[in-house]
Each structure stands twice: as C-alpha cells, then as structure tokens.
C-alpha cells in the first residue's frame, strides 16, 4: 500500500560499506512523501544512523542514488549541494553534543538562518531582518521562554536543549527533517512532550519527517509508514495500521513481541 503524494525524498539502492568491509547499509530503497512521517525501526547496529548520515551528505555513499526534491545529493559538487542543504535538517540523539558549549543559545539557534541568508521561511518572512525577533518567534513555536536565548547550553536541561535543536531544525522551513533517535537520551515524560511537539509542528508546517528509532512505540506514535531494518537491509515495510497484521516478517514480529512485553 502506498500513500499518494509528492515525493520529497527518494532513495534508490543505497549501499554504504565501511573501510573494514562491514556493510552498514545494503541496497536500501525508500521514499518519503510530502507531509509524511516515515519511521525506521531497528536494533542497534542495524545501519539506521549510517543511513541518516548518508542522507545528510555527511558520509560518502558507495552505490545508489539519493534524490531530495528530485535533486541528486551526490552528483552534486559542493556548490550545487548548497540549495539542496536548505531542504534538509536533522535532530540527533544527544542534545548536549548538538550545541556548541561555547556559544550562547541564540547563536546556535540562528546558525542556519545566519549562514543561509537567502532562505525566507514563510513564518518568519515579516521579521527576516530582525535576528532577536526571529529567535523569539522560533522559541515560542517550540514552547521555550525567550530568556533562555542568552543562556549557555549547560544551563538548560536535556529536554530544553532538544527543543532548541528542534527550533533550529524548523527555522529554515526544510522539506525534510531527519530525526535520529530524538528522544533516546531523555526521560519518559519529556519524551512524550517532545514527540507531541514534533507532531504538532509537522501538522502546522507540513514538513516531512524521517523518524529513526529503536523504540517501536515512539515510531508507531509518530509515523504513517514504518520500515524495519536489520543488518543494513530493509526486511519489512508496512503502513502503521498493518503493523500488527499476521503477514508481517518474523523479525518484525520479534520486535513487536519485545515491545508488547
């Protein structure tokens, strides 16, 4: 079953092998449609994060093709990568490592907008030249008081930092945000709040998500479609509603079993 819609991200036969010969990602193909959240589940070492790094053009790929809004990410030389970059953002697992401890929150937050001046996000159009006002509005969108803007990262809690990072990710209004275990380092009550925030933002802004997690419950909550990865390969994919059906791959059933227990 396929959701009909505009394809934001298309990955064809992507393979990535590390120097040691270990195949981290093996012939992965997937698509993410506009406004959709695609979940990727898999245990540690299943190649989820490597896949994410490849999609963000942080790693070189060995084989295959990545198309972001029909523009290839890898034929691109450095210059033509620039406009593609403005369509993709990421939220990583560890919020502390994602903020430079020497910079004030506002400087980390505004990094994408400071360095990509041409971008005019629809929700910041009217105040594009007022840096503090933009920062305040972004903070409002993720539910943070604006006094934190002048703080340093170590003065914020993990959940607050993750909100800052989410604000940074939406700031340039990208077509796609890759969420690589965005809640894994937070405690349970904060996890739920962050997931709800992400869901609300998606509804408001129509951004597509690629949600990577080992937490089946979170993936199930966030995604319309779910892909199951094992040892770098896609072993199963289905829509959210079919997740509990009998036709699922045995590995998916194993995961579900753990999840239910």
């Amino acid at each position: 079953m396929r959701v009909v819609g505009q394809e934001i991200l298309t990955v064809k036969n992507l393979s990535k092998e590390y120097v040691c010969g270990h195949k981290a990602v093996d012939q992965v193909s997937l698509t993410v449609n506009k406004g959709e959240c695609l979940g990727i589940v898999g245990e540690s070492g299943s190649g989820k994060s490597t896949l994410a790094r490849c999609l963000l053009a942080l790693e070189k790929i060995d084989e295959g093709e990545i198309l972001l809004k029909e523009k290839s990410l890898y034929n691109a030389n450095k210059k033509s990568l620039h406009p593609v970059r403005s369509e993709i953002q990421a939220v990583f697992q560890n919020p502390s490592a994602s903020l430079n401890p020497k910079l004030k929150i506002i400087d980390s937050l505004m990094e994408p907008l400071d360095f990509q001046r041409k971008i005019q996000p629809s929700f910041l159009m009217d105040i594009r030249n007022q840096r503090t006002k933009m920062a305040e509005r972004l903070f409002e969108m993720v539910g943070l008081p604006s006094k934190y803007l002048s703080y340093y990262p170590h003065e914020l809690s993990g959940g607050q930092k993750q909100r800052v990072i989410i604000a940074r990710a939406i700031s340039i209004e990208p077509a796609l945000i890759i969420l690589d275990e965005p809640t894994a380092s937070l405690d349970v009550s904060i996890q739920a709040k962050i997931l709800n925030l992400l869901k609300d933002l998606q509804e408001d802004l129509g951004i597509s998500y690629l949600f990577i997690s080992h937490d089946l419950a979170a993936v199930n909550f966030m995604s319309q479609r779910i892909i199951v990865m094992k040892q770098g390969q896609i072993v199963d994919q289905c829509s959210k509603h079919d997740l509990f059906s009998d036709r699922r791959h045995p590995y998916t059933k194993d995961l579900l079993h753990v999840f239910e227990a």
Binding site: R53, L56, A57, L58, L81, H82, R85, S86, I88, Q89, A90, F92, N94, A97, S98, L99, N100, K102, L103, S108, E111, P112, F115, Q116, R168
Partner: peptide
Amino acid sequence: KDYISMAKINGMSSLNILRRHMIPHVTG
C-alpha cells in the same frame, strides 16, 4: 561532536566552521 555535523548540514564552509566553532574552543 554532533554540532559540527549540524554545521555541515547547515551548509557552513570549513573555514566558517573553523572560525565559529573551533577557534573559541582553541582560544581558551
């Protein structure tokens, strides 16, 4: 660290990354 990956995702050039992220750490 991830914030360097983030800077790359944001399309910052190596020179800008060195200037903005590395130099403050090195200076102290």
